[in-house]
Design a protein around this nucleic acid. Structure first.
Length: 554
RNA sequence: GGGCCUGUGGCUUAGUCUGGACAGAGCGCCGGGCUUCUAACCCGGACGUCGAGGGUUCAAAUCCCUCCAGGCCCGCCA
């Protein structure tokens, strides 16, 4: 309702004033919407904005389509207060299954996220990518887009060559209890130590890369083996994080199918292309002073070449291409886009997120300085298990475990998604293991409380009526949900969902505390049950967009 | 040295793109609330030079400039 009403008021204001930007904002405590358009008209005419506001408000009040909205002025502000109709309609919408779904749009979107190098387990930095990406993916599906989520597997890069060298030369064996991606990290870390002490190894690594690029069968097999076992570890972690990729795309495919060669042929015809020993593009006209190297002097391609080929393929098969990448990829992301423009291909929209560091400094797989996602999951589950055991001792161990796992997932995903992507963060165990306010479990808890009331109430016939202050506050928040979905996919900022969900849970908890539902008189009982149902439904949808389980009991 | 991002009460953070009505939350602190639909909860209180300084504007946390601090990038790595 919020979304529709906003658009309705906006166009009415545009019609009356003839101004495109009518300064329609959220009204805060004064109103539901407010317009500051009188200020700009007043400035234009060099007259007081107050009578202008009054005049516009008069004209608006006469409009049939704004009948349900109370319009008043407070000085130069034109305030809009949603009436009973608005609240009722919001309730009706929210009680339906799939509330917040936007209209289907037949637009195919490919969204790439995580895409970590398979040289060690996913750590708490990587999963910021995963969680931002997966939440965006869920929001896009909810907003009616056809979506495919991809993981781009860097399976022939230098890091993998180092792992392959390590597997061949270091006599390391995977321990029985060791997850395969953790084993690969051990090999990678050891190999790097050896490389630091012996500079002949670099030549051997180069040689491996030449062989894999020439698709030499034995070497290729070794690369694929190393990548395969690491990836199988990732898949377990991703599953536990409730993040799903529709397709894993390997960069080696773009060598094998000739796309990279074709791309290089095309780039060679650009005036920006220079072939000396290496082949590179001079993108200085686009504002990039660095050489954008495509082919090394030994004839092998660098990552950029395969990535360009991958993006051309994505651009030709989808209407929109979205990448979630760490802030360290900003420069190469810019170079990639500039190059795709030069050759007339579709460019990706890149969502960058800033780094997660540890209190002692930045993370590094190579140096073994990281907190793995697996460790985080393990610890959070442990903590959640303790919590469930004390709160719900009467439940079976299986039931407790099921709840604990969901609570742990909620805590992890929410802790990460709630912070805006452009913020640097320092990983904090205390915050991650917090299940209280402003946490995922807090929102789950609000849903569980609502579910418990509905469960006890049994069948009831809904009554769409909103009277008390705390009822109005909840329903107004419910009304905003589709608008939040829309903003999330326009701004590509999934933390908006997180803030929204928390506010909804806050308002519901106040309502829950203020007003009895089951013990209310007949009519109020029905209307409050309707509000509880609408809230539960909306909370369930927000949780689902965040990839968090909606638990009916916890 | 250059580029990008960040700087909001003791700590974490929303709001900044799209300027607007007293800067919202949470943790922590102080004080209340479980014979009442799950207290992973609710209510109240104290705590803010919105990094600093200039500028634009009727109006600046928000736009512009300078400076300071932190992160990231500036590989024939990815």
């Amino acid at each position: 309702m919020f979304r529709e009403t906003y658009k309705c008021i906006e166009s009415a204001l545009q019609e009356i004033t003839g101004i495109k930007d009518v300064g329609l904002i959220e009204g805060g405590e004064h109103a539901d919407f407010a317009s500051t358009v009188a200020f700009s008209i007043g400035r234009e005419n060099k007259t007081s904005p107050v009578p202008i506001a009054t005049d516009i408000a008069d004209k608006l009040s006469k409009l049939e389509i704004l009948k349900a909205i109370k319009i008043e002025t407070k000085g130069p502000y034109i305030n809009f207060i949603a009436g009973e109709e608005y609240l009722k309609e919001a309730l009706v919408c929210a009680c339906q299954e799939g509330y917040g779904n936007l209209e289907k749009r037949g637009i195919r979107v490919v969204l790439e996220h995580t895409s970590a190098n398979p040289n060690g387990p996913l750590h708490v930095g990587h999963i910021r990518n995963t969680i931002i990406g997966d939440t965006l993916a869920r929001a896009f599906r909810k907003a009616g887009f056809q979506l495919e989520v991809q993981y781009y597997v860097n399976n022939i890069g230098r890091q993998i060559a180092i792992v392959v060298w390590g597997l061949d030369n270091l006599d390391l064996i995977q321990n029985e209890s060791e997850k395969s991606d953790h084993f690969i990290a051990r090999v990678y870390i050891e190999a790097n130590k050896k490389i630091n002490n012996d500079n002949t190894i670099t030549g051997q690594i180069d040689h491996l890369m030449q062989k894999v690029e020439a698709i030499e069968p034995e070497t290729t097999k070794k690369f694929f083996y190393a990548v395969g076992i690491c990836l199988s570890g990732f898949e377990t972690t991703l599953l536990e994080l409730n993040a799903k990729h529709d397709r894993f795309v390997s960069e080696s495919d773009f060598i094998r199918n000739g796309d990279t060669d074709r791309l290089i042929g095309k780039l060679k015809r650009l005036p920006e292309c220079h072939i000396e020993d290496r082949m590179y593009l001079d993108l200085s006209n686009e504002g990039f002073l660095k050489e954008y190297v495509i082919v090394r002097s030994d004839g092998t391609t660098v990552y950029a070449a395969r990535d360009l080929a991958y993006h051309i393929w994505k651009g030709r098969n989808f209407d929109r291409v979205i990448d979630v990448l760490g802030a360290d990829h900003k420069l190469i992301g810019g170079q990639l886009i500039a190059t795709l423009k030069l050759i007339g291909e579709r460019t990706p929209e890149i969502v960058h997120f800033e780094f997660v560091s540890l209190p002692e400094g930045s993370m590094s797989t190579r140096q073994g300085k990281f907190i793995s996602a697996d460790e985080l999951i393990l610890e959070t589950r442990k903590r959640a298990r303790e919590e469930v055991r004390t709160r719900r001792p009467e439940l079976s161990t299986e039931e407790q475990e099921r709840i604990a796992q969901s609570v742990a997932l909620a805590a992890i995903r929410y802790d990460i998604v709630k912070v805006s992507p452009e913020k640097n963060t320092v990983f904090n165990w205390e915050e991650a293991l917090n299940f209280e306010r402003q946490s995922g479990p807090y929102i789950q808890y609000a849903f569980a409380r609502a579910s418990s009331i509905l469960e006890k109430a049994g069948d009831f016939s809904p009554l769409y009526q909103v009277k008390d202050q705390s009822e109005i506050a909840v329903v107004k928040q419910i009304a905003k949900f589709p608008y939040i979905i829309e903003r999330t996919i326009i701004e590509l900022r999934p933390h908006l969902i997180a803030s929204y969900a928390r506010e909804l849970a806050d308002l519901f908890n106040s309502f829950y505390h203020d007003l009895p539902v089951l013990k209310a008189a007949e009519e109020e009982k029905r209307s409050r049950l309707t509000i509880v149902k609408a809230t539960a439904q909306t909370l369930k949808e927000t949780l689902s967009v965040m990839g968090i389980d909606a638990l009916k009991t916890m």
